[in-house]
Write a protein that binds this DNA or RNA. Structure first.
Length: 564
RNA sequence: CGGGAUGUAGCGCAGCUCGGCUAGCGCGCCUGCCUUGGGCGCAGGAGGUCCCGGGUUCAAAUCCCGGCAUCCCGACCA
């Protein structure tokens, strides 16, 4: 393709709305343009890269027996009523105004409805169905360019199985396929255990890229490889020890002491003796949560224990329910509360907590003797530096971008939609499902985040929109033009994808800058000086390494480069 | 949905505090000449509902009220 003809509107200046490198470079390299918040047009260059990404995904999905579908984005709202997800998604799902239709934010329901109508026997299973299509989500706050948009391309795959062993197998196949996909795309990634959240289901893993601009937070152990989303991460922090000495409850006057830090200072006691109280509301039912010292409650973990929506109680509610304000709440003497306790406090005694009376705390609380505990659960958020659960080495906590997520869904959707098959015994059973997503634009953006310098992007051969960037340096020099045209022909005959900068109204410096910005891995530079000796210069974008070769050897040089 | 910022030519910005504008600068764009190894130079030129609506005033980009949009932080995020 000739640069004089193709539409690649590069920018010298950085658009002010773009803050992260991938967003800036995608705009500057003429790959995308914004149309509204979280909505982007892909221009020809950007779309070529997107297609490369999709081809890698397609290739690996087909390799595990996936069958590609093309599914509707417009869905009848009744379909989503069946699984109760109109409510679950809430404002995140786009609703059409003049028809009872929604824009699909994902496709479990559609897949399930097809399965329901056509998968009748265990003989029809297993199946791996996938699609690479636009999804729509009314994100409250789109950000970071294409990384979080209101419409985006997702590869979504679904496994349908008759047995749980089958689900395990399908899940593992996807995990392996995902490793291949992200490796082929040239990404440095890691895999974490994750929460399955509102998708439902059991096991779940996320494929992450470490990035300052990531919206997820993960704990990593560089020693043994432990990795988990902070939503589910655990560490090996010591539990409270049970004292041999049994002491009676005592009331302690603690004027103007509210926070755990103040209490610790005031009483001069070890933080491990302090039990922090938090009150959450499950509908109209209060839940008291006890955490050790200043441990932070992890709301995702709480949600997985409670299994329904909860919210922190408000100040007036607290006063009415407990008789005290935040800072003086405790487990003793509460009416109608469910009480759950973090595992670090399991069975502990001689604890100090609020008295449910302002300015007072209670000492020597024995959770076994004094409190009716409804359960001990892991509820805390871990911190960087805590010992790894597996090997004891300090954990790292990093921000990360989620590239892919694999779930074992189970029968949540097939039950809700009555997608049943008949087993060997003629017995009706729900199809067992798994769900596996990849953010296609995110692969592109994350690749750029990991592979750029101050001049621009550095594409790998796998994702580069063209194989080589042919630069005709001096457009007024007849021999340069002739040679560049000749090489353009020759390279194309050898099935090399060439982007040819044949512009005759652009200075050499401008062409070099553009070439480095676009980041095609190999530049073939036809300039007057080298040509005088019958030579052509070849520059590798990523290393800056330059080679001078004879004209006749350019094609074989390029072929060798592309094969390596 | 809370907090903050911004909105002036295709892009990046100045002007706004203290009203006087016939709105300016750089880049880009068009024409001509020139130059040709790192975003050339010279000359000429086109391009604006100053986000929208209302108000104050002799006079509003500028002051006041309302709205919208975009970005950032937070909340949320299958």
């Amino acid at each position: 393709m000739r640069l004089s003809k193709i539409f690649i509107p590069t920018l010298k200046e950085i658009p002010s709305d773009a803050l992260i490198p991938s967003h800036q470079l995608m705009l500057r390299a003429g790959m995308i343009r914004p149309l509204g918040a979280g909505v982007y047009s892909f221009l020809p260059l950007g779309y070529r890269i997107l297609k490369k990404v999709m081809e890698i995904i397609r290739d690996e999905m087909d390799a595990i027996g996936g069958q590609e579908f093309h599914l509707p984005a417009l869905n009848p709202i009744e379909l989503w009523e069946e699984t109760g997800r109109v409510k679950d998604f809430g404002d995140t799902m786009f609703h059409l105004k003049n028809r009872p239709l929604v824009l699909a934010p994902t496709h479990e329901e559609v897949i399930c409805s097809i399965a329901k109508n056509h998968i009748k026997s265990y003989r029809d299973l297993p199946q791996i169905w996938y699609q690479i299509q636009m999804k729509f989500r009314n994100e409250p706050r789109p950000r970071s360019g294409v990384i979080r948009g209101r419409q985006f391309i997702m590869k979504d795959a679904y496994t349908l199985d008759a047995t749980w062993e089958g689900l395990d197998k399908g899940y593992d196949l996807h995990a392996e396929a995902y490793k291949k996909i992200f490796s082929r795309a040239g990404l440095k990634f890691f895999i974490v255990g994750a929460s399955s959240g509102a998708m439902g289901g059991s096991a779940s893993q996320e494929f992450m890229v470490e990035s300052e601009s990531g919206e997820d937070t993960c704990a990593l152990c560089d020693q043994c490889g432990y990795a988990a989303n902070l939503e589910v991460a655990t560490s090996n922090m010591p539990k409270a020890q049970r004292d041999a000495e049994i002491k009676p409850i005592e009331e302690i006057h603690t004027p103007n002491v509210g926070t755990i830090d103040e209490l610790k200072e005031f009483l001069k006691v070890d933080e491990q003796r302090l039990a922090k109280s938090l009150v959450y509301m499950q509908d109209k039912n209060p839940i008291l949560i006890l955490m050790m010292g200043n441990d932070q409650l992890n709301e995702t973990k709480l949600l997985s224990v409670i299994k329904s929506a909860v919210r922190p109680s408000q100040a007036e509610e607290l006063k009415t329910l407990t008789g005290a304000d935040a800072g003086s709440i405790g487990p003793l003497g509460l009416q109608g509360f469910k009480i759950i306790v973090d595992k670090r406090l399991e069975g502990a005694n001689n604890l100090i907590s609020g008295a449910n009376k302002n300015d007072y705390h209670i000492g020597n609380i024995d959770l076994q003797r004094d409190v009716k505990v409804d359960g001990y659960y892991d509820l805390r958020t871990i911190n960087a530096g805590e010992p790894c659960l597996k090997c004891g080495k300090p954990l790292r906590v990093v921000n990360a971008i989620e590239l892919g997520h694999i779930f074992k869904l189970g029968t949540k959707y097939s039950d809700a939609m009555h997608a049943y098959y008949l087993d060997e015994n003629g017995k009706e059973k729900p199809i067992i499902m798994g769900s596996y997503g990849i953010g296609v634009e995110r692969i592109m953006a994350c690749y750029i985040e990991q592979n750029h310098d101050k001049h621009g992007i550095m594409w790998s051969k796998a994702l580069s929109p063209y194989h080589v960037h042919l630069i005709q340096v001096n457009s007024n020099h007849e021999k340069v033009v002739q040679t560049a045209e000749h090489l353009y022909e020759k390279l194309q005959q050898s099935l090399v994808d060439v982007l040819f900068d044949d512009r005759n109204d652009v200075s050499p410096g401008f062409k070099f800058k553009d070439a480095d910005l676009l980041g095609i891995p190999l530049q073939v530079i036809v300039g007057e000086k080298n040509l005088a000796h019958g030579n052509i210069e070849l520059k590798e974008r990523s290393t800056g390494k330059r080679d001078i070769v004879e004209i006749s050897k350019v094609v074989s040089y390029v072929e060798k480069f592309l094969e390596s």
